[in-house]
């Protein structure tokens, strides 16, 4: 079943990406990237490595984190439920099968697309800083999220109010998606909503780059908002998780600005990169 879902996701993304590259990025940038991609890759290598390391740690932690979490974590399901009660049942009044289908596909496909497309789009920019910031922000989201997941043990609304949510619970209507999400997350990892924080991060970047990609900006905002709402509509996250996701996104966007370009490779590795750094303004920042 996992293979089936993965194929579906790959297929949808495989169709969406080339179309969006043509629509949002344009030929001119593609041509320039073709000429410069080696240099850009070299500049971006450290931050790509950092992101990969964070993702790898995330992956490994999936095995060890539950036991650690059991020892140091705080149980907050009841607290969340006490604070916001049946807030997310608000969506019950607008519930329709069409809306459920929309939010389910946004949650799985829209989200994946939202995360992957900016990586390509910002790689196409001659100024590599945006790309590096985006990847740094992703890494921060995952890293901080992982720490919070270990410290806070909480089940989402679907685990507390199954009967009220049954018509639109993602895993009741589309049980196959649970094979995908359990690859990524344990069911006690709800605070904060990483779906929300990563989507909001992408929307924030889309806003910063709207002069370069004017058409992408509204799409990103609508998609990001849909993802955030979908997590509540589908009963996966509490309103509190989504709020925390927005705060996390803001923090990661700000931090990425502070961190990226702070350490220069030429400082770290001597003049081996000298020739390269001539062409790259960011490496001279400290000078």
């Amino acid at each position: 079943m996992l293979a089936e879902v993965l194929t579906q996701v790959a297929l949808v993304i495989g169709i969406l990406l080339p179309i969006s590259v043509l629509v949002f990025i344009g030929r001119e940038r593609l041509v320039r990237t073709r000429a410069e991609w080696r240099d850009r890759l070299r500049t971006n290598a450290p931050v790509i490595a950092v992101l990969l390391v964070v993702l790898l740690i995330n992956r490994v932690a999936r095995q060890t984190a539950p036991e650690l979490s059991r020892k140091v974590g705080v149980h907050l399901t009841a607290t969340f439920y006490n604070v916001e009660g049946e807030f997310i049942l608000l969506f019950k009044s607008v519930e329709t099968p069409e809306l459920t289908a929309y939010f389910a596909s946004v949650y799985v496909f829209g989200y994946t697309f939202l995360l992957i497309f900016p990586v390509i789009a910002y790689f196409m920019l001659s100024d590599t800083r945006t790309f590096r910031r985006l990847l740094a922000a992703y890494a921060l989201n995952y890293a901080i999220g992982l720490v919070l997941y270990i410290l806070i043990i909480a089940y989402g609304p679907r685990n507390v109010m199954p009967a009220e949510l049954t018509e639109r619970m993602l895993y009741d209507t589309n049980p196959q998606y649970q094979y995908l999400t359990r690859e990524v997350n344990a069911n006690t990892n709800v605070f904060p909503s990483l779906h929300t924080s990563l989507s909001a991060t992408v929307a924030a970047f889309a806003s910063m780059t709207r002069s370069a990609y004017p058409k992408w900006f509204p799409i990103a905002v609508v998609l990001a908002a849909s993802v955030a709402i979908s997590t509540m509509y589908l009963g996966i996250h509490w309103g509190i998780d989504v709020a925390a996701g927005l705060v996390l996104a803001a923090a990661c966007v700000v931090l990425s600005d502070k961190l990226v370009g702070r350490w220069s490779l030429s400082d770290l590795f001597g003049d081996r990169f000298e020739g390269l750094s001539d062409r790259l303004p960011r490496l001279r920042r400290e000078e």
Binding site: A78, Y155, R158, N159, V160, M161, P162, A163, N187
Partner: peptide
């Protein structure tokens, strides 16, 4: 305080509890 299981593990327990 009612100590019980999440719906993923035992849907009936959490429903009875609520």
């Amino acid at each position: 305080t009612i100590t019980t299981l999440p719906a993923d593990s035992d849907r009936q327990s959490i429903r009875l509890s609520r």
